[in-house]
């Protein structure tokens, strides 16, 4: 029983990490319809920048804010020079963001080398006990910030003008133009937001997962799977999808063969794509799934 509880708690922590990676996708997807395959790498870049800046002697909070801002700026540059020329061509959008991911990882190796780096935990390493299960304090940070960001982003989409404009672009680009919303200006904003979200994700998970140049790749992919499970474009869906994925992984690692744990994510991915491509929480997106014969 204690074991199951520990699996559940661990699953929630990992799930939050995946969910956090996942919500970074939603902003961009909502506006531009681009699935950014370099999203995980932005998290890596954000974390690496924060580590480097704090090693240069900046106070941690300044280093973190600066890293988050810089990553947002990098995201805007990516939007301007790679995503915009491609336009709304799905096919080229996928490949170009894959290319951006390769470049970011390459730059990371050149700048930071291939060795893993870590950030000190925000509030110590003393584990917290809960009915026999234990969590590290950093996990609580991850879960807390993930929840705050997911809810915050959902509220942002629900309540603010700009958030509504994001959703409007996704629902009906023509109508958006008619009311004066320019996708040209929304798209960099979306990339900046996702860059910032990615950087925050990378920074708060770095003390747990540790960061090296290719850490973002797998975390980004898992975040993507979380989005598929929860329904693309919906931050709360991404969070819930991440939690489902995380719990599925820890339970399968705990009770089944642990080696196949990584396959679980992709089996879930294929399963959802094929049997419920709209995810758990979203209306079907006609652009992505075949309707007509």
């Amino acid at each position: 029983m204690v074991d199951a509880l520990q699996f559940l708690v661990s699953g929630l922590v990992i799930g939050s990490i995946y969910g956090l990676a996942g919500i970074g996708f939603t902003g961009i997807y909502n506006v531009t319809g681009v699935v950014n395959f370099a999203q995980g790498d932005k998290a890596m870049i954000g974390a690496m920048l924060a580590i480097s800046l704090s090693q240069m002697g900046l106070p941690p909070i300044v280093a973190i804010l600066l890293a988050v801002g810089l990553t947002g700026a990098v995201a805007v540059v990516i939007e301007c020079f790679t995503v915009r020329p491609v336009g709304n061509d799905v096919w080229r959008g996928i490949i170009v963001t894959i290319g951006v991911g390769i470049v970011l990882r390459g730059i990371a190796v050149v700048v930071w080398g291939t060795e893993a780096r870590g950030l000190p935990a925000f509030s110590g390493e003393e584990p917290i006990h809960f009915l026999g299960a234990t969590v590290s304090p950093q996990s609580l940070w991850v879960m807390g910030i993930t929840a705050v960001l997911a809810i915050g982003l959902a509220l942002f989409f629900q309540l603010t003008f700009i958030g509504k404009a994001f959703r409007a672009c996704a629902v009906n680009p023509f109508a958006s133009r008619i009311v004066g919303i320019e996708i040209r200006t929304m798209s960099p904003i979306a990339f900046a937001i996702s860059g910032v979200l990615g950087a925050i994700a990378g920074i708060i998970i770095a003390p747990i997962t540790l960061m090296q140049y290719d850490t973002g790749l797998l975390i980004g992919l898992k975040g993507f799977v979380a989005c598929i499970i929860g329904g693309f474009g919906n931050p709360m869906g991404a969070l819930l999808g991440g939690l489902i994925l995380g719990i599925a992984e820890t339970f399968s690692a705990g009770y089944l063969s642990s080696g196949y744990k990584n396959a679980i994510a992709f089996v879930l991915l294929l399963g959802f794509l094929i049997f419920r491509p709209e995810g758990l929480f979203r209306e079907i997106d006609s652009k992505l799934v075949k309707h007509e014969r």
Binding site: L159, F161, K164, A165, R167, A168, F174, A175, S176, V179
Partner: peptide, 28 residues
Amino acid sequence: QLFGSLSVIDNLKLGRYTQVGALERWLP
């Protein structure tokens, strides 16, 4: 050409998009 998955009131609000100040756009 409505925003189908947005509420009636949100559709109306978006009609005001260009007249809203930069600050107001970002505030809930």
